[in-house]
Amino acid sequence: MVGEKQLLTAEGVVCGYDGREVLHSVTMGAARGEFVGLIGPNGSGKSTLLRALTGILPLSAGLVLLEGRALDSYSRRQIAQKIAVVPQVTGHIFSFSVEDYVLMGRTPHLGRLQGHHASDLHVAWEAMALADITDLASRPVTELSGGELQRATIARAFAQQTDILLLDEPTAFLDINHQHDIFELLARFNREQGKTIVCVSHDLNLAAQYCQRLVVLSEGCVHTEGPPEAVVTEQMIERVYHAEVAVDIGPGGAPRVSLMPGGSSPRGEQR
């Protein structure tokens, strides 16, 4: 399952919080240039897997490999030069400007005594242009809407200039148009710059439409993985989400999931 070209992989990863095991031996990976979606019901371990891939969670067994080397053999700074993370950001209480906020993405590339060079500013502005937020540059982050803050945080990750981008539910709490904007932005970043993206999503349709490969987690284990058309099926959703749905082909050619009226079983967790 884990091939030669893999850039970031989890191998037999077991981890959790405070002795409660959330992931039970998970093996998955992302190849260079791939756009991978992590899907699964609430509590299946998607966000935990993402955090394990960042190196922030101690593992009780297994390994996370970055370019074939154990992640814990890298320093924090080295990891941040290769992996950018967009966590779920709900709000800030301090009034940095959007420009300063995005510039923080340059942190792992700057020495302790070093100020920002013109080149760092240039990278930050390119990232803001890519995320389409240049008009917000001087606004304090405290005044941004949810969608704007999400874009600013993605721009900050772009400014980090890493090969890998990990995102935790980047479209949570956003309106439907903003959800598509965010995924369009990620798809373009993946396509045009060849960046590797691993994105947790609770939205099956968005994930199926934009990701090249989906990894389905269920109760802390990988249930299935593969291209969206192979993975997103009525049977998988019935078994993993305990929901009765119809799957057809959407206008973009990707599988499209529709909930059947009254089709959610009592154990169903699909929102």
């Binding site: 960042t54 922030i56 320093s75 924090r76 700074r77 990891i79 941040a80 030069q81 992996i83 950018a84 993370v85 966590p87 950001v89 800030h92 301090f94 940095f96 300063d100 923080m104 993405g105 942190t107 792992p108 980090q160």
Partner: peptide
């Protein structure tokens, strides 16, 4: 500056928190 974002984000930005 980065610590103002919280420990987790500081960590992602390369700070050994």
């Amino acid at each position: 500056n980065v610590l103002l974002m919280g420990d987790e984000q500081a960590y992602y930005l390369g700070v050994p928190v």
